[in-house]
Design a protein around this nucleic acid. Sequence first.
RNA 1: GGCCCCUUCGUCUAGCGGUUAGGACGGCAGCCUCUCACGUUGCAAACACGGGUUCAAUUCCCGUAGGGGCUACCA
Length: 483
Amino acid sequence: MAQDHVRVRIGPSPTGEPHVGTAYVALFNYAFARSHQNGAFVVRIEDTDQKRSSAHSEQAILSALNWLGLRWDEGPDVGGDHGPYRQSERKEIYQKHVQQLLDAGHAYWCSCTPERLTQLRQRQRLLGQPTGYDGRCRQRDAAEIEQDKQQGVPAVVRLKVPQEGVTQFTDLLRGPISIANTEIDDQVLLKSDGFPTYHLANVVDDALMKITHVLRGEEWISSTPKHVLLYECLGFTAPQFGHLPLLRNADKSKVSKRKNPVSLDYFRQAGYLPQALLNFLGLMAFSMPDGQEMFSLQEFVEQFGLSRISLGGPVFDLDKLLWLNGRYLRERLSTDQWVEYIQQQLFCPSYLTQIAPLVQERINRSDDFWQYADFFFAGDVTIDPSHYCIKGLEKKPTLKLYEQLLDLIATLPFQQEQELEQQLRDFCNKHQIRTRDLFMPIRLMVTGKKATPPLFATMLVLGKQRCLTRIRQAVQALRRHSY
RNA sequence: GGCCCCUUCGUCUAGCGGUUAGGACGGCAGCCUCUCACGUUGCAAACACGGGUUCAAUUCCCGUAGGGGCUACCA
Protein backbone atom coordinates (compact mmCIF):
# COMPACT_ATOMS: atom_id res chain seq x y z
CA MET A 1 0.00 0.00 0.00
CA ALA A 2 1.59 3.20 -1.14
CA GLN A 3 2.06 5.72 1.59
CA ASP A 4 0.91 8.89 -0.07
CA HIS A 5 -0.68 10.72 2.80
CA VAL A 6 0.49 14.20 3.50
CA ARG A 7 3.04 14.52 6.28
CA VAL A 8 4.32 17.85 7.50
CA ARG A 9 6.44 18.95 10.38
CA ILE A 10 7.75 21.84 12.35
CA GLY A 11 11.27 21.82 13.69
CA PRO A 12 11.50 24.29 16.53
CA SER A 13 14.90 24.90 17.96
CA PRO A 14 14.73 24.94 21.76
CA THR A 15 16.99 27.91 22.26
CA GLY A 16 14.87 30.38 24.15
CA GLU A 17 11.35 31.60 24.58
CA PRO A 18 8.62 29.95 22.51
CA HIS A 19 8.41 32.25 19.52
CA VAL A 20 5.32 33.60 17.85
CA GLY A 21 6.91 32.73 14.50
CA THR A 22 6.97 29.10 15.56
CA ALA A 23 3.26 29.27 16.29
CA TYR A 24 2.59 30.90 12.92
CA VAL A 25 4.45 28.25 10.95
CA ALA A 26 2.95 25.54 13.16
CA LEU A 27 -0.56 26.82 12.47
CA PHE A 28 -0.10 26.66 8.71
CA ASN A 29 1.47 23.23 8.86
CA TYR A 30 -1.27 22.03 11.14
CA ALA A 31 -3.94 23.35 8.81
CA PHE A 32 -2.25 21.82 5.80
CA ALA A 33 -2.11 18.42 7.47
CA ARG A 34 -5.64 18.56 8.80
CA SER A 35 -7.09 19.70 5.52
CA HIS A 36 -5.91 16.48 3.91
CA GLN A 37 -7.18 12.96 4.43
CA ASN A 38 -5.10 11.37 7.15
CA GLY A 39 -2.55 14.13 7.04
CA ALA A 40 0.02 13.97 9.82
CA PHE A 41 1.51 16.87 11.73
CA VAL A 42 4.85 16.13 13.34
CA VAL A 43 6.87 18.06 15.89
CA ARG A 44 10.59 17.47 15.79
CA ILE A 45 12.95 19.17 18.18
CA GLU A 46 15.98 20.52 16.34
CA ASP A 47 18.47 20.72 19.14
CA THR A 48 21.73 20.27 17.29
CA ASP A 49 23.16 23.44 18.74
CA GLN A 50 24.50 22.02 21.96
CA LYS A 51 25.51 25.35 23.37
CA ARG A 52 22.16 27.06 23.04
CA SER A 53 19.60 24.28 23.38
CA SER A 54 17.91 23.49 26.65
CA ALA A 55 15.34 21.03 27.90
CA HIS A 56 13.59 23.88 29.64
CA SER A 57 13.10 25.70 26.37
CA GLU A 58 11.84 22.56 24.68
CA GLN A 59 9.28 22.13 27.42
CA ALA A 60 8.20 25.75 27.11
CA ILE A 61 7.72 25.42 23.36
CA LEU A 62 5.64 22.26 23.59
CA SER A 63 3.60 23.75 26.37
CA ALA A 64 2.95 26.92 24.39
CA LEU A 65 1.84 24.95 21.32
CA ASN A 66 -0.47 22.97 23.53
CA TRP A 67 -1.88 26.14 25.00
CA LEU A 68 -2.72 27.25 21.49
CA GLY A 69 -4.50 23.99 20.89
CA LEU A 70 -2.34 22.81 18.02
CA ARG A 71 -2.17 19.07 18.55
CA TRP A 72 0.51 17.02 16.85
CA ASP A 73 0.39 13.39 15.84
CA GLU A 74 4.02 12.57 16.40
CA GLY A 75 6.58 14.24 18.57
CA PRO A 76 9.09 13.84 21.38
CA ASP A 77 6.37 13.67 24.02
CA VAL A 78 3.80 11.55 22.20
CA GLY A 79 6.12 9.30 20.22
CA GLY A 80 5.35 7.87 16.81
CA ASP A 81 6.63 5.44 14.22
CA HIS A 82 9.47 7.58 12.97
CA GLY A 83 11.25 8.56 16.15
CA PRO A 84 13.20 9.61 17.98
CA TYR A 85 11.84 13.11 17.49
CA ARG A 86 14.73 14.92 19.08
CA GLN A 87 17.74 15.42 16.85
CA SER A 88 20.19 15.10 19.69
CA GLU A 89 19.00 11.51 19.99
CA ARG A 90 19.65 10.75 16.35
CA LYS A 91 23.38 11.31 16.16
CA GLU A 92 24.23 7.83 14.89
CA ILE A 93 21.71 8.20 12.11
CA TYR A 94 23.38 11.36 10.85
CA GLN A 95 26.78 9.78 11.31
CA LYS A 96 25.75 6.94 9.07
CA HIS A 97 24.53 9.25 6.34
CA VAL A 98 27.60 11.40 6.53
CA GLN A 99 29.68 8.28 6.01
CA GLN A 100 27.54 7.39 3.05
CA LEU A 101 28.19 10.80 1.51
CA LEU A 102 31.89 10.53 2.23
CA ASP A 103 32.10 7.10 0.65
CA ALA A 104 30.26 8.25 -2.44
CA GLY A 105 32.54 11.25 -2.80
CA HIS A 106 29.75 13.74 -2.21
CA ALA A 107 31.35 15.12 0.91
CA TYR A 108 34.83 15.64 2.31
CA TRP A 109 36.66 16.41 5.51
CA CYS A 110 37.81 19.95 6.04
CA SER A 111 40.14 21.19 8.75
CA CYS A 112 40.49 24.80 7.74
CA THR A 113 40.65 27.14 10.71
CA PRO A 114 37.94 29.67 11.46
CA GLU A 115 40.53 32.39 11.00
CA ARG A 116 41.30 31.33 7.48
CA LEU A 117 37.62 31.13 6.65
CA THR A 118 36.99 34.60 7.97
CA GLN A 119 39.82 36.03 5.92
CA LEU A 120 38.59 34.17 2.89
CA ARG A 121 35.14 35.64 3.20
CA GLN A 122 36.47 39.14 3.64
CA ARG A 123 38.54 38.83 0.51
CA GLN A 124 35.66 37.41 -1.51
CA ARG A 125 33.39 40.15 -0.42
CA LEU A 126 35.92 42.75 -1.37
CA LEU A 127 36.10 41.23 -4.83
CA GLY A 128 32.33 41.16 -5.18
CA GLN A 129 32.28 37.39 -5.31
CA PRO A 130 29.83 35.12 -3.56
CA THR A 131 31.21 34.31 -0.14
CA GLY A 132 31.81 30.67 0.59
CA TYR A 133 34.33 27.97 1.07
CA ASP A 134 37.02 27.85 -1.62
CA GLY A 135 37.34 24.08 -1.66
CA ARG A 136 40.89 23.92 -0.38
CA CYS A 137 40.34 20.65 1.46
CA ARG A 138 38.48 19.00 -1.40
CA GLN A 139 41.55 17.26 -2.79
CA ARG A 140 43.22 16.07 0.36
CA ASP A 141 44.12 12.38 0.36
CA ALA A 142 43.13 9.82 2.92
CA ALA A 143 46.54 9.73 4.55
CA GLU A 144 46.54 13.43 5.28
CA ILE A 145 43.09 13.26 6.75
CA GLU A 146 44.03 10.27 8.87
CA GLN A 147 47.07 12.12 10.16
CA ASP A 148 44.98 15.11 11.17
CA LYS A 149 42.61 12.81 12.94
CA GLN A 150 45.46 11.19 14.89
CA GLN A 151 46.68 14.57 15.98
CA GLY A 152 43.20 15.63 17.01
CA VAL A 153 42.92 18.53 14.58
CA PRO A 154 39.31 19.73 14.63
CA ALA A 155 37.57 18.98 11.36
CA VAL A 156 34.17 19.26 9.78
CA VAL A 157 32.53 17.46 6.89
CA ARG A 158 31.45 19.56 3.94
CA LEU A 159 29.13 18.90 1.04
CA LYS A 160 30.92 18.76 -2.31
CA VAL A 161 28.67 21.04 -4.31
CA PRO A 162 29.00 20.71 -8.10
CA GLN A 163 30.95 23.62 -9.54
CA GLU A 164 28.79 23.91 -12.59
CA GLY A 165 25.13 23.83 -13.36
CA VAL A 166 22.02 25.13 -11.74
CA THR A 167 19.91 23.73 -8.94
CA GLN A 168 16.20 24.25 -9.22
CA PHE A 169 13.16 23.54 -7.14
CA THR A 170 9.53 24.51 -7.34
CA ASP A 171 8.24 26.50 -4.47
CA LEU A 172 4.62 25.64 -3.74
CA LEU A 173 3.81 29.31 -3.34
CA ARG A 174 6.10 31.01 -5.83
CA GLY A 175 6.81 28.59 -8.63
CA PRO A 176 10.24 27.64 -9.92
CA ILE A 177 13.30 29.04 -8.18
CA SER A 178 16.76 28.34 -9.45
CA ILE A 179 20.19 29.18 -8.18
CA ALA A 180 23.52 28.67 -9.93
CA ASN A 181 25.62 26.05 -8.19
CA THR A 182 28.52 28.49 -8.08
CA GLU A 183 26.42 30.46 -5.62
CA ILE A 184 26.00 27.50 -3.32
CA ASP A 185 28.53 27.10 -0.56
CA ASP A 186 30.20 23.82 0.34
CA GLN A 187 27.98 23.67 3.35
CA VAL A 188 29.23 22.20 6.60
CA LEU A 189 27.22 19.04 7.30
CA LEU A 190 28.93 17.74 10.38
CA LYS A 191 30.38 20.07 12.96
CA SER A 192 33.63 19.37 14.72
CA ASP A 193 31.70 18.43 17.86
CA GLY A 194 30.17 15.55 15.95
CA PHE A 195 26.73 17.11 15.73
CA PRO A 196 25.09 17.65 12.37
CA THR A 197 24.21 21.11 11.14
CA TYR A 198 20.62 22.06 10.46
CA HIS A 199 20.99 21.30 6.78
CA LEU A 200 22.07 17.70 7.16
CA ALA A 201 19.84 16.83 10.08
CA ASN A 202 16.87 18.42 8.47
CA VAL A 203 17.24 16.61 5.16
CA VAL A 204 17.96 13.24 6.71
CA ASP A 205 15.08 13.55 9.15
CA ASP A 206 12.55 14.78 6.64
CA ALA A 207 13.46 11.89 4.37
CA LEU A 208 13.40 9.27 7.12
CA MET A 209 10.26 10.67 8.67
CA LYS A 210 8.60 10.55 5.26
CA ILE A 211 7.79 14.23 5.25
CA THR A 212 5.97 15.08 2.03
CA HIS A 213 5.68 18.86 2.28
CA VAL A 214 8.00 21.31 3.93
CA LEU A 215 6.23 24.52 4.89
CA ARG A 216 8.71 26.77 6.56
CA GLY A 217 9.76 30.41 6.79
CA GLU A 218 10.95 32.36 3.79
CA GLU A 219 14.36 32.72 5.38
CA TRP A 220 15.11 29.20 4.14
CA ILE A 221 14.65 29.83 0.45
CA SER A 222 18.30 30.44 -0.25
CA SER A 223 19.42 27.26 1.46
CA THR A 224 16.83 25.08 -0.19
CA PRO A 225 19.09 24.31 -3.18
CA LYS A 226 21.63 22.87 -0.72
CA HIS A 227 18.90 20.68 0.63
CA VAL A 228 17.81 19.61 -2.84
CA LEU A 229 21.39 18.64 -3.62
CA LEU A 230 21.60 16.71 -0.38
CA TYR A 231 18.48 14.72 -1.11
CA GLU A 232 19.95 13.79 -4.46
CA CYS A 233 23.32 12.79 -3.06
CA LEU A 234 21.67 10.67 -0.40
CA GLY A 235 19.39 9.00 -2.90
CA PHE A 236 16.22 10.38 -1.38
CA THR A 237 13.25 11.92 -3.11
CA ALA A 238 12.95 15.51 -2.00
CA PRO A 239 9.69 16.70 -0.44
CA GLN A 240 7.83 19.68 -1.83
CA PHE A 241 8.80 23.04 -0.47
CA GLY A 242 6.67 26.01 0.36
CA HIS A 243 8.09 29.10 1.99
CA LEU A 244 5.80 31.24 4.08
CA PRO A 245 6.32 34.99 4.18
CA LEU A 246 8.03 36.15 7.32
CA LEU A 247 6.22 37.98 10.09
CA ARG A 248 7.54 41.54 10.28
CA ASN A 249 8.08 44.35 12.72
CA ALA A 250 6.42 47.69 11.96
CA ASP A 251 9.58 48.68 10.06
CA LYS A 252 9.24 45.55 7.91
CA SER A 253 12.28 43.77 9.27
CA LYS A 254 11.88 40.18 10.40
CA VAL A 255 9.85 40.16 13.59
CA SER A 256 12.16 40.35 16.57
CA LYS A 257 12.01 40.66 20.31
CA ARG A 258 13.83 43.95 20.20
CA LYS A 259 10.87 45.55 18.46
CA ASN A 260 7.90 43.42 19.41
CA PRO A 261 6.69 41.06 22.04
CA VAL A 262 7.29 37.71 20.36
CA SER A 263 7.20 35.24 23.22
CA LEU A 264 4.11 33.07 23.33
CA ASP A 265 4.49 33.09 27.08
CA TYR A 266 4.10 36.82 27.02
CA PHE A 267 0.81 36.60 25.14
CA ARG A 268 -0.49 33.92 27.43
CA GLN A 269 0.57 35.88 30.43
CA ALA A 270 -0.72 39.21 29.14
CA GLY A 271 -4.21 37.78 28.94
CA TYR A 272 -4.60 37.02 25.27
CA LEU A 273 -6.86 34.09 24.54
CA PRO A 274 -5.20 31.31 22.59
CA GLN A 275 -8.08 31.22 20.10
CA ALA A 276 -7.65 34.92 19.45
CA LEU A 277 -3.91 34.70 18.93
CA LEU A 278 -4.31 31.73 16.65
CA ASN A 279 -7.05 33.50 14.72
CA PHE A 280 -4.85 36.54 14.36
CA LEU A 281 -1.93 34.46 13.13
CA GLY A 282 -4.32 32.95 10.62
CA LEU A 283 -4.95 36.45 9.31
CA MET A 284 -1.27 36.82 8.56
CA ALA A 285 -0.67 36.03 4.89
CA PHE A 286 -4.00 34.26 4.67
CA SER A 287 -7.59 35.27 4.06
CA MET A 288 -10.88 33.46 4.10
CA PRO A 289 -12.70 33.17 0.76
CA ASP A 290 -15.65 35.13 2.15
CA GLY A 291 -13.48 37.71 3.86
CA GLN A 292 -14.49 36.54 7.32
CA GLU A 293 -11.97 37.70 9.89
CA MET A 294 -13.09 35.88 12.98
CA PHE A 295 -12.81 32.15 12.70
CA SER A 296 -12.03 29.08 14.74
CA LEU A 297 -9.14 26.73 14.14
CA GLN A 298 -11.66 24.30 12.77
CA GLU A 299 -13.00 26.81 10.27
CA PHE A 300 -9.47 27.80 9.33
CA VAL A 301 -8.63 24.21 8.55
CA GLU A 302 -11.79 23.80 6.48
CA GLN A 303 -10.99 26.77 4.27
CA PHE A 304 -7.25 26.42 4.23
CA GLY A 305 -5.45 26.21 0.92
CA LEU A 306 -2.01 27.17 -0.27
CA SER A 307 -3.54 29.29 -3.01
CA ARG A 308 -5.03 31.61 -0.42
CA ILE A 309 -1.66 32.56 0.98
CA SER A 310 -0.35 35.98 -0.01
CA LEU A 311 3.35 36.64 -0.26
CA GLY A 312 3.97 40.10 1.11
CA GLY A 313 5.54 39.88 4.57
CA PRO A 314 2.78 40.77 7.02
CA VAL A 315 3.45 43.26 9.76
CA PHE A 316 2.57 41.81 13.13
CA ASP A 317 0.12 44.50 14.24
CA LEU A 318 -0.66 44.38 17.94
CA ASP A 319 -3.56 46.80 17.56
CA LYS A 320 -5.55 44.41 15.46
CA LEU A 321 -4.72 41.49 17.70
CA LEU A 322 -5.97 43.52 20.63
CA TRP A 323 -9.24 44.26 18.88
CA LEU A 324 -9.68 40.62 17.96
CA ASN A 325 -8.92 39.46 21.47
CA GLY A 326 -11.52 41.90 22.76
CA ARG A 327 -14.10 40.37 20.49
CA TYR A 328 -13.30 36.87 21.69
CA LEU A 329 -13.50 38.05 25.26
CA ARG A 330 -16.96 39.52 24.95
CA GLU A 331 -18.48 37.44 22.18
CA ARG A 332 -17.14 33.98 22.80
CA LEU A 333 -16.85 33.78 26.57
CA SER A 334 -19.74 33.64 29.00
CA THR A 335 -19.37 35.44 32.30
CA ASP A 336 -18.78 32.15 34.04
CA GLN A 337 -16.13 31.16 31.59
CA TRP A 338 -14.42 34.47 31.95
CA VAL A 339 -14.48 34.25 35.74
CA GLU A 340 -12.86 30.88 35.47
CA TYR A 341 -10.29 32.25 33.09
CA ILE A 342 -9.45 35.12 35.44
CA GLN A 343 -9.04 32.75 38.33
CA GLN A 344 -6.78 30.48 36.40
CA GLN A 345 -4.74 32.98 34.46
CA LEU A 346 -4.67 36.12 36.56
CA PHE A 347 -5.17 35.08 40.13
CA CYS A 348 -3.75 31.65 40.05
CA PRO A 349 -2.43 30.62 43.47
CA SER A 350 1.12 30.04 42.33
CA TYR A 351 1.35 33.62 41.08
CA LEU A 352 -0.26 35.05 44.20
CA THR A 353 2.17 33.05 46.28
CA GLN A 354 5.04 34.85 44.65
CA ILE A 355 3.52 38.27 45.18
CA ALA A 356 2.07 37.92 48.66
CA PRO A 357 5.32 37.87 50.65
CA LEU A 358 6.52 41.00 48.91
CA VAL A 359 3.39 42.88 49.87
CA GLN A 360 2.66 41.34 53.24
CA GLU A 361 5.52 43.01 55.02
CA ARG A 362 4.60 46.52 53.98
CA ILE A 363 0.87 46.82 54.59
CA ASN A 364 -1.45 47.02 57.60
CA ARG A 365 -4.75 46.19 56.00
CA SER A 366 -5.26 43.58 53.33
CA ASP A 367 -7.30 45.92 51.22
CA ASP A 368 -4.10 47.88 50.72
CA PHE A 369 -2.98 44.96 48.66
CA TRP A 370 -3.71 46.76 45.41
CA GLN A 371 -1.70 49.75 46.39
CA TYR A 372 1.44 47.63 46.29
CA ALA A 373 0.44 44.97 43.84
CA ASP A 374 -1.65 46.51 41.09
CA PHE A 375 1.21 46.52 38.61
CA PHE A 376 1.59 42.76 38.99
CA PHE A 377 -1.75 42.51 37.24
CA ALA A 378 -1.98 45.63 35.14
CA GLY A 379 -1.12 45.46 31.48
CA ASP A 380 -0.11 49.05 31.07
CA VAL A 381 1.81 51.03 33.67
CA THR A 382 2.98 54.00 31.67
CA ILE A 383 3.26 57.30 33.49
CA ASP A 384 4.63 60.70 32.58
CA PRO A 385 7.78 60.03 30.56
CA SER A 386 9.71 62.69 32.44
CA HIS A 387 10.09 60.10 35.18
CA TYR A 388 12.26 58.05 32.90
CA CYS A 389 14.95 60.67 32.60
CA ILE A 390 18.34 59.92 34.06
CA LYS A 391 19.88 62.56 36.22
CA GLY A 392 22.58 64.50 34.43
CA LEU A 393 22.14 62.72 31.13
CA GLU A 394 20.89 64.19 27.86
CA LYS A 395 18.05 62.61 25.97
CA LYS A 396 20.09 60.98 23.27
CA PRO A 397 22.60 59.16 25.47
CA THR A 398 19.74 58.23 27.78
CA LEU A 399 17.86 56.53 24.97
CA LYS A 400 20.99 54.79 23.87
CA LEU A 401 21.63 53.60 27.38
CA TYR A 402 18.12 52.18 27.63
CA GLU A 403 18.59 50.33 24.37
CA GLN A 404 21.67 48.73 25.82
CA LEU A 405 19.79 47.98 28.98
CA LEU A 406 17.09 46.21 26.98
CA ASP A 407 19.74 44.17 25.23
CA LEU A 408 21.26 43.21 28.55
CA ILE A 409 17.98 42.28 30.18
CA ALA A 410 17.02 40.21 27.16
CA THR A 411 20.01 37.98 27.82
CA LEU A 412 19.61 37.58 31.58
CA PRO A 413 18.27 34.33 33.00
CA PHE A 414 15.83 35.94 35.46
CA GLN A 415 16.33 33.19 37.98
CA GLN A 416 17.99 34.76 40.99
CA GLU A 417 17.45 38.09 42.62
CA GLN A 418 21.10 38.56 43.55
CA GLU A 419 22.28 37.80 40.09
CA LEU A 420 19.86 40.23 38.50
CA GLU A 421 20.91 42.90 40.96
CA GLN A 422 24.57 42.25 40.32
CA GLN A 423 24.15 42.42 36.57
CA LEU A 424 22.33 45.72 36.79
CA ARG A 425 24.92 47.10 39.19
CA ASP A 426 27.64 46.08 36.79
CA PHE A 427 25.72 47.79 34.05
CA CYS A 428 25.70 51.02 36.07
CA ASN A 429 29.38 50.70 36.76
CA LYS A 430 30.21 50.13 33.17
CA HIS A 431 28.27 53.20 32.10
CA GLN A 432 29.37 55.28 35.08
CA ILE A 433 25.94 56.00 36.43
CA ARG A 434 24.99 55.90 40.06
CA THR A 435 22.78 52.94 40.76
CA ARG A 436 20.09 55.09 42.32
CA ASP A 437 19.92 57.21 39.16
CA LEU A 438 19.16 54.18 37.06
CA PHE A 439 17.22 51.95 39.42
CA MET A 440 14.47 54.46 40.16
CA PRO A 441 13.68 55.04 36.49
CA ILE A 442 13.65 51.28 35.95
CA ARG A 443 11.32 50.89 38.90
CA LEU A 444 8.99 53.50 37.43
CA MET A 445 9.13 51.84 34.04
CA VAL A 446 8.23 48.38 35.24
CA THR A 447 5.78 49.34 38.00
CA GLY A 448 4.68 52.91 37.31
CA LYS A 449 5.29 53.70 40.97
CA LYS A 450 7.96 55.11 43.23
CA ALA A 451 7.11 52.95 46.20
CA THR A 452 7.21 49.28 45.47
CA PRO A 453 8.52 46.03 46.86
CA PRO A 454 12.23 45.53 46.19
CA LEU A 455 12.94 46.15 42.54
CA PHE A 456 14.77 42.97 41.66
CA ALA A 457 12.33 40.65 43.38
CA THR A 458 9.54 42.54 41.69
CA MET A 459 11.15 42.16 38.30
CA LEU A 460 11.58 38.45 38.79
CA VAL A 461 7.93 38.02 39.64
CA LEU A 462 6.88 40.12 36.67
CA GLY A 463 9.09 38.02 34.49
CA LYS A 464 11.49 38.93 31.77
CA GLN A 465 8.96 39.42 28.99
CA ARG A 466 6.78 41.82 30.89
CA CYS A 467 9.78 43.79 32.09
CA LEU A 468 11.09 44.06 28.57
CA THR A 469 7.74 45.09 27.19
CA ARG A 470 7.20 47.74 29.81
CA ILE A 471 10.68 49.16 29.49
CA ARG A 472 10.33 49.16 25.74
CA GLN A 473 7.04 51.02 26.00
CA ALA A 474 8.54 53.50 28.41
CA VAL A 475 11.51 54.12 26.16
CA GLN A 476 9.19 54.78 23.26
CA ALA A 477 7.23 57.25 25.36
CA LEU A 478 10.46 58.92 26.34
CA ARG A 479 11.54 59.11 22.73
CA ARG A 480 8.40 61.08 21.89
CA HIS A 481 8.72 63.22 24.99
CA SER A 482 10.69 66.45 24.79
CA TYR A 483 13.15 67.19 27.52
C1' G B 1 29.16 43.67 -1.92
C1' G B 2 26.90 38.85 -4.01
C1' C B 3 22.56 35.75 -4.58
C1' C B 4 17.39 35.01 -3.88
C1' C B 5 12.34 36.51 -2.61
C1' C B 6 8.58 40.26 -2.34
C1' U B 7 5.50 45.04 -3.74
C1' U B 8 -3.12 47.15 -3.57
C1' C B 9 -5.21 52.45 1.76
C1' G B 10 -0.53 53.83 7.75
C1' U B 11 -1.45 48.16 8.92
C1' C B 12 -3.88 43.03 7.63
C1' U B 13 -6.00 41.94 3.05
C1' A B 14 -10.03 40.92 -1.40
C1' G B 15 -9.13 41.11 -6.50
C1' C B 16 -7.01 36.11 -10.44
C1' G B 17 -7.87 41.50 -18.19
C1' G B 18 -13.29 45.26 -18.46
C1' U B 19 -14.99 46.83 -10.65
C1' U B 20 -17.62 53.73 -8.58
C1' A B 21 -10.67 48.98 -6.62
C1' G B 22 -14.26 45.71 -1.68
C1' G B 23 -13.68 44.42 3.69
C1' A B 24 -11.09 44.75 8.53
C1' C B 25 -7.71 47.29 12.25
C1' G B 26 -6.22 52.12 13.35
C1' G B 27 -7.74 57.58 12.58
C1' C B 28 -11.64 61.32 12.27
C1' A B 29 -16.98 62.70 12.75
C1' G B 30 -22.09 61.47 14.17
C1' C B 31 -25.59 58.31 16.77
C1' C B 32 -26.52 55.38 21.32
C1' U B 33 -25.60 56.68 26.56
C1' C B 34 -25.31 58.93 33.79
C1' U B 35 -19.40 58.28 32.50
C1' C B 36 -16.32 54.94 30.02
C1' A B 37 -16.33 50.88 27.07
C1' C B 38 -19.30 48.11 23.68
C1' G B 39 -22.39 48.75 19.55
C1' U B 40 -23.71 51.47 15.26
C1' U B 41 -23.56 55.09 10.92
C1' G B 42 -20.53 57.93 7.87
C1' C B 43 -15.75 60.22 6.15
C1' A B 44 -10.56 60.43 4.72
C1' A B 45 -7.07 56.80 2.99
C1' A B 46 -4.05 52.32 -1.80
C1' C B 47 -2.96 49.56 -7.13
C1' A B 48 5.71 52.07 -6.36
C1' C B 49 7.59 53.85 -11.26
C1' G B 50 8.77 53.08 -16.64
C1' G B 51 8.26 50.15 -20.81
C1' G B 52 5.84 46.36 -23.44
C1' U B 53 1.52 42.41 -24.66
C1' U B 54 -3.76 43.42 -25.47
C1' C B 55 -9.55 46.44 -28.13
C1' A B 56 -8.67 46.83 -22.68
C1' A B 57 -4.24 46.41 -17.63
C1' U B 58 -4.21 46.72 -10.40
C1' U B 59 -4.38 41.93 -12.84
C1' C B 60 0.32 38.98 -17.88
C1' C B 61 5.84 39.95 -19.39
C1' C B 62 10.49 42.89 -18.94
C1' G B 63 13.22 46.65 -16.59
C1' U B 64 13.92 50.35 -12.54
C1' A B 65 13.15 51.69 -7.63
C1' G B 66 11.96 50.31 -2.76
C1' G B 67 11.55 46.59 1.05
C1' G B 68 13.02 41.86 2.97
C1' G B 69 15.89 37.34 3.56
C1' C B 70 20.36 34.64 3.18
C1' U B 71 25.49 35.12 2.88
C1' A B 72 28.10 30.76 10.50
C1' C B 73 31.10 24.53 12.82
C1' C B 74 22.75 29.21 14.63
C1' A B 75 18.53 27.35 13.35
